[in-house]
Every structure is written in structure tokens, then in C-alpha cells.
Computed example of a mutant assay.
Amino acid sequence: MQVEKSRDRRTMKCLVVLQICAAVVTMLLISTFYLTMYPSNKGKKHTPSTNIVPSNPIQKDNIAILYAIDPIGHSFCFRDGQYGEEITDWTVFNRCSDLDFNSYYAGNFTVGIEGGRVGTIIDLGSRGDLEKKYKYQETVGHGQGYASIHRTNKTLLILDNYQSHTFQAMDESAALFQDASSSTTVAAKLDHVYALRITDRYDGKFERIVKMLVIAYHPNESVTIRWEVLP
């Protein structure tokens, strides 16, 4: 009897130990689950959906700085948003120069400067000039006029009424879309809006139309532009 009681006690102790071990293992598994899975889910919870597409997509972050004395950064390519020249084998080569700053004429933008390309660039005036001329109402920040400029066939359009979201034709359209025969240059001015058009003598299908806004300007040093290619 004494032996059986002793054996029962040992059995009970073993069972208790096993239960304690099982509980500890279960707690460890639960802790590991929350430590590995919860932060991941929490991060996913606050991540914006990448499937949301705006109804009217626009180009973002199209800001470029052109430098007057930089061998690469004085020209710009609107095709890929990079500088127009490159250094290879210790030599400067042109690769795609749609726009030049300061090299041909001090303080000026020049277009139609490579190969068979010809171009026209027009100073549309300051944002205030455009507001007065076309009599639309601006909002805080004075960016509605620039943002609204787009094209339909051979006509540039600009804001007419902000509330009704209507647009009006720009008088400068005829000058922009006339046939060009050479390069064109115009002075760079702070807060001025520009429209430019580049075509090719040997490729009748090529056309690149861009609007620009000068957002910073340091004469003889650099100019910063916000730009957008108009389809």
C-alpha cells in the first residue's frame, strides 16, 4: 500500500509538471504570435491603398533647377525629366536638350537648339498678369491659373470660372502653334508662366508642348522651374 501511494504521488507530480510546462509553452507561442504578426498587421492597417487612381491624374514633382555655369545642368530634356547633356569619356555630349538656360543668351531660355529641332517659347506673363487679362478668380496660393492651362488641338485653354470649372481660349495660341523655322529665346523672369512648343524639320509627327512656371531665379546662377508636358 505504501508503495502504491508513493507511486501515485510521483504520478501526480509528473502530471502537474507536465501541465505547467504545457501552459508555459502555450504562453510562449501566444507571445511569439503577437510579437511577429501584430506589428505587421498594424503597419498594413495604416498603409494607403495603391489601387486608388485619381480621376484626372497629373504629373507630380516636376521641378527642375537649371544652372548657368554647369556643363550638364544648363539644359533640360522634357522627355525624361533629366539634364540634357552628359559627360562620357571625359567629353560633354548632348543627349536631349529641349530647353537651355543662359548658354545662348544670358538670362534667357532658348528652345529648338539641337539637330533638326525648331521651337517657340512664349512668356505668358506673371500669374497676376494672367489673372487680370483673363479675369478669372484665383484661390489662396495663386496657382489655379497655371494649373488650368492645357491644350485642345491647336488651342491653349486657361481657367474661366473656378466654381463652374470652365475654361477659355488663350490669345497666345496662334503664336505658339505657328510654324517655327529656328530657335526662339525669351528672358527668364520670376513668377512668370511660359508655354513652349518644339517640332522637328525631319519628323513631321514630332511635337512637344510644355508649360512652365519660374518659381525661383538667381540671375547668372540658376533658375528653378515647375513644368508639365501637355498631351
Rank of each mutant, 00 (worst) to 15 (best):
S164M: 05
N161T: 05
G145N: 03
H192C: 03
V210F: 05
D171F: 03
T184Q: 03
L156E: 07
H150C: 02
T139A: 11
V186L: 09
A195N: 07
Y134I: 12
A174P: 00
D160Y: 12
A180T: 01
S148T: 06
L156A: 09
R201T: 06
H150D: 01
R197E: 08
D200W: 02
H150G: 01
L213E: 01
T166V: 12
L213W: 04
E131W: 02
G141C: 07
A175L: 14
A195D: 05
I149R: 14
T152C: 02
A147F: 07
D129N: 06
A174R: 07
T184V: 01
G204K: 13
L157V: 03
Q168M: 13
L157D: 10
N153E: 08
G141D: 00
Q163E: 08
L176S: 08
D171E: 14
T152D: 08
N153H: 04
A187T: 08
E138N: 13
T152H: 07
G145I: 13
G145M: 12
L130V: 00
Y136T: 00
A147I: 07
K154G: 04
I149Y: 09
T185N: 13
F167C: 15
G145A: 14
R201S: 07
L176H: 05
E138Y: 05
Y146D: 02
Q168E: 13
V186C: 10
Y146N: 01
S183L: 12
L157Q: 15
Q178G: 09
G145S: 03
K132I: 05
A147D: 15
T155V: 09
G143I: 01
K205M: 08
E138Q: 14
K135D: 14
S181P: 00
Y146F: 04
E207M: 14
H142R: 09
F206H: 08
H192Q: 07
K132H: 06
Q144S: 09
I158D: 14
D160Q: 14
A188K: 07
S148D: 08
D129V: 00
T184A: 04
Q144E: 07
F177Q: 11
R197I: 01
Y194R: 01
H192L: 02
L156H: 11
T155W: 02
L213S: 02
S182E: 10
V193C: 03
K133E: 14
F177V: 08
E131R: 14
A195H: 02
V140F: 05
I149K: 15
N161D: 03
A174C: 02
S173W: 01
N161Q: 03
F206E: 08
H142E: 11
V186N: 10
E207G: 12
L157K: 15
H192N: 13
H192R: 14
F177Y: 14
T152F: 00
D179Q: 08
D129T: 02
E172R: 05
H192W: 07
M212L: 15
A188S: 10
V210A: 07
Q137L: 05
A195W: 01
